[in-house]
Computed example of a mutant assay.
Amino acid sequence: MVELQTSRLDSVFHALGDATRRRMLRNLAAGERTVSQLAEPFAISLAAASKHIKALENAGLIRREVRGRTHVCRLDPGPLAGAHEWLTFYEHFWTERLDVLERLLREEDARKNPPSKETPHD
């Protein structure tokens, strides 16, 4: 089970590692697109677009349906949940460390600039 999850996560991050594929996913978030529509914003051939789409399919991030001679793709965001979960661990990791750094810097500032002990004039 863990190997399957690791393999899926590897596929998702591989797919997300390419700017063209990330942009394709963003376009699919607005709704279904044909392969031609997905390729259109890029200076790439339909064959190159198909390779990108295949990587997204292998990661489970999109589904392709054949309607006659037209291939229609739609977003399947489910696998992104696993990537988000993995990234959340590191978000917490860095948040905790940055919180400690902030506390230490505030303590250092307080030591360098102690509050004034003067009493206010009435």
Rank of each mutant, 00 (worst) to 15 (best):
E3T: 10
L4P: 06
Q5F: 11
T6E: 15
T6H: 13
T6S: 12
L9K: 03
D10H: 11
A15F: 02
T20G: 00
M24G: 04
M24C: 09
M24F: 06
R26L: 15
A29L: 13
A30T: 15
A30D: 15
E32T: 11
E32C: 09
V35S: 00
Q37H: 08
L38G: 01
A39W: 02
E40L: 05
P41H: 11
A43N: 13
A43V: 15
I44R: 07
S45D: 10
S45E: 04
A47H: 09
A47Q: 10
A48K: 11
A49V: 00
L56R: 01
A59V: 07
A59M: 00
L61A: 07
I62S: 03
R63K: 13
E65R: 06
R67M: 05
R69H: 04
T70V: 08
H71M: 08
L75C: 03
P77T: 01
P79H: 04
P79W: 01
A81Q: 02
A83L: 01
E85R: 07
E85H: 02
T88K: 09
Y90N: 01
H92M: 12
H92L: 13
W94Q: 03
L98W: 05
L101I: 12
L104E: 12
R106F: 13
E108S: 14
D109Q: 14
K112M: 15
P115D: 04
P115H: 09
P115R: 07
K117P: 08
K117G: 07
P120N: 13
H121S: 10
